[in-house]
Design a protein around this nucleic acid. Structure first.
Lengths: 191, 191
DNA sequence: ATTGATTGCAAGTGGTAACTTGCATTATTT
DNA sequence: AAATAATGCAAGTTACCACTTGCAATCAAT
């Protein structure tokens, strides 16, 4: 199935901006990669910023983590947390473009700054509620839910960045390994 | 005390590159901020890349963490780890410029990519040795030193990025809070 | 005080990037 | 088949940026 012209432009922009940053990605090259004439970009999105804003629009949907959560949680720490790691890493991977963009071009796109604040906050909040209930249910030790939640997010975010920016390419930290070792250790500290 | 011309240029470059990225920081503006004529930059460093390489040279010294470590460790988990968090966060703060630069301009400066790989690896290695010895001394539980070390680094790196890029400005996560809550929880999982 | 190096000033060069315009061509719709 | 819209092509405009050059002014060391 073919992509629409707009989508071709958006995809090409995502790729190039990831490779070279906002300023490094020229409209000419975007057009080239999309297999289109440069003018077409402008006719669709007005200007370069307009293209990137369309990219953001597309990738910055408020996510479904909350629903995923309600559907998949079975109130068993180990299984739940392992599932959540996968979901979160998947979500980060999906949003990699905009996450890296927001780091690279901080300030340039205010919507992004807001989003980057929102994602971890939301995630911490969801986890906080989860740990609270688990404490109530006496399924885990009596811990401070907020602390546990932030640590969990820090570990996840640290892992994500380590593998995408610090050690890209190398497969030293495959996710299964991460879950079986690092997350498992984390889980043990809750029991 | 006055800075030398070269240092003024380097400092101005650090500031502007942090604000606007490598491509966004124009030589004109660097000169302006350094209170110098634009030509002077080129006479000193040849070209723009040369300036940034001087910045890297200055900030990318292989660090003293290893020595700090030998000097300050007293083989008490809680005190040691709290001390190490401060040292590591201080180190990250010092190198913030090059860390962010390496994220922003990945690929543009190969030395940086190497450094960004080296810093966490080195840190994990040092910590691994520390935890190994602590297990031997029976001061902490029998844990996998490597796992504990990576988790510790992930938490630290996650915290660092959260506060510098995701939530800049806001003082929601002051370091003392981080240590007293998050790190303390981590420490408890070792005892 | 003289000399040699450092910096400032002014003007310019070459290159490239974003964006425009007019017209021809191809798709899509009616 | 005719009309409307989407895309291509070619050429150009404007703006800015990295970098250069020649000369004057200043500063530092001898």
């Amino acid at each position: 199935m073919k992509l629409s012209t707009k989508d071709r432009i958006i995809e090409a922009t995502v790729e190039l901006v990831n490779e070279k940053g906002y300023k490094g990605a020229t409209t000419r090259e975007i057009a080239e990669r999309a297999g289109l004439n440069e003018v077409t970009l402008f006719r669709h999105f007005g200007n370069k910023k307009g293209i990137v804003e369309a990219v953001i629009q597309k990738y910055a949907f408020v996510d479904l983590l909350e629903n995923t959560f309600k559907d998949k949680v079975i109130w068993e720490v180990e299984k739940d947390l392992k599932m959540l790691v996968r979901e979160y890493q998947f979500l980060l991977e999906q949003k990699k473009t905009v996450i890296l963009l927001s780091i690279k071009e901080a300030g340039e796109f205010p919507e992004l700054d807001a989003l980057m604040k929102y994602i971890p906050q939301k995630y911490i909040e969801i986890l906080k509620n989860y740990f609270e209930k688990m404490v109530e249910k006496e399924k885990i030790k009596k811990v401070d839910p907020t602390i546990v939640a932030t640590n969990f997010v820090f570990i996840n975010f640290g892992y994500f960045l380590m593998k995408t920016r610090i050690n890209p390419g190398e497969e030293e930290y495959p996710i299964d390994n991460f879950i079986e070792k690092n997350i498992e250790f984390f889980i043990q500290s809750l029991q």
